[in-house]
Design a protein around this nucleic acid. Structure first.
Lengths: 257, 257
DNA sequence: TATGGGTATTTTCTAATGTTATTGATCTGT
DNA sequence: ACAGATCAATAACATTAGAAAATACCCATA
């Protein structure tokens, strides 16, 4: 039986918080529906920032949340626990991602979120933010697009788990994170920070840690990737894409979905 | 390599369409965000109804759709095809379900939809409907709730594929459909119409038809369900729930999500 | 009632993935 | 530098699920 989390919720307020007007995440499409536009109006919202340790529960499935979060810095993940402790990781959260979109519409979510690394969160009052977003058609549009985007990404993952081999899944996860880090402007080159333990990869891809180990070794032996000390390197991008059928169109926020 | 669909898109206009004010789906939560409220304003929208044969493609992944559909009657499903023909069914669509929520925000969706049985669709103009929904805060709220609901259901499915056994998945699919038919008011008793071929079940649960057959036999031999001539019967609800860990809370549209 | 197409079932065999256990490497804090 | 913890790699074995092929079963329709 798995422990739910290593650390209880705990954090430290960052004073003063980064000013949204100067926010380095602003230019990137994936960032919160708020922080991108209407910066002046945004000042009216009570923004805070928190420094949260690694492996910390941010909120638990079905528990009402009174705050809306975006991830300023660090990694996290969404997950569900089954009654007997099995865990399914639903998505990994990267710098710039909104953690809790749904909370702008309903009070509690169907999943839990915890940090993977030390993280800085932007924290907004839930009701206030929801009202603010509803008040402007452009922000609403943005919010709704992000929801559609979340659905599209989840469907992609569903096809992974249902119909793709362990090797395909593994390759696609690496390419997905690579592409998202690029999109969020947190990366350069083909080597990037990869703080996931094999247990996280396993719980995200529907495999066991042992099989993740085997699969990763296969990718390494074929010269597709290298991995050492939390650093993932894509050695042969072309072939990695070829064996996994990866396409990054589902990552685009505009157009198709 | 799988054929994309058996039948090309084809349909027959239903004249006159059922009047929304008298719509038997109206009382049920899952029905379209439109048809439940503001019936008078709704009259302004160009509603049509179509009779569509079984196994017919309604629209294809990434293709712009100019209409918004709800399923008045019959069954359908959302799916994705991989490059080599593997198919992942994302969800089954039951009477009362909106087929294409996302289309109210973006022009094309990341999945295809086809009918499973003969079906009657309610058809609305996409732009007109989107504008109508944006125009009233209550309808917007409803639309956003339905999006959150779709996400929650998909996450549930993700946990199924990633972390539950074939038997659990099978049992949960049966219970899920049972519960949704109940919620949509299309059912009575513990026997219900089940028009899925084993191939559909396999493509939804991430299994092969052979394994679906084996799994279903196991459920039958344990006296949990009976299945004959497209009719599924739940014989031992308690135990079916027990072995599958099914909870129907994710189906509620209000509260938690 | 006979026929044919689409489904479902069964069997046998094989490949993919899970389980258990052990070892070695790496990291962390003192 | 050491102790304890976490993590990764590997091996041997068990189980689950996929593949292929043959047969049986339906059901619709002529």
């Amino acid at each position: 039986m798995r422990e739910d989390v290593a650390n209880p919720t705990s954090y430290q307020e960052i004073v003063p918080p980064v000013d949204c007007a100067a926010c380095p995440r602003r230019p990137h499409v994936m960032y919160s529906p708020i922080c991108g536009e209407a910066i002046d109006a945004l000042r009216g919202l009570r923004l805070r920032q928190r420094l949260v340790p690694a492996k910390t529960l941010i909120f638990r499935e079905d528990e009402p949340v009174e705050e809306f979060y975006t991830l300023f810095d660090g990694w996290g993940f969404r997950y569900k626990l089954l009654a007997d402790g099995r865990r399914q990781i639903l998505s990994f959260l990267l710098p710039g991602d909104p953690l809790t979109l749904g909370v702008l519409t309903v009070k509690a979510l169907s999943y839990s979120v915890q940090t993977l690394t030390v993280a800085r969160l932007c924290v907004f009052d839930r009701e206030e933010t929801a009202a603010f977003i509803q008040s402007e058609s452009e922000l609403r549009q943005r919010y709704q697009r992000l929801s559609v985007h979340e659905i599209a990404g989840t469907y992609e993952r569903l096809a992974d788990l249902g119909r793709r081999s362990a090797k395909e899944r593994m390759a696609r996860l690496i390419l997905d994170i690579h592409a998202r880090l690029n999109a969020n402007g947190v990366m350069q080159g083909n080597t990037f920070d990869f703080p996931l333990r094999q247990e996280h990869v396993a719980d995200a891809l529907g495999l066991t840690t042992i099989h993740v180990s085997r699969t990763l070794r296969a990718l390494r032996e074929e010269g597709l990737v290298a991995y050492h000390a939390n650093a993932m390197q894509i050695l042969d991008y072309q072939n990695l894409v070829a064996i996994s059928g990866f396409r990054d169109n589902y990552l685009a926020l505009d157009g198709t979905a």
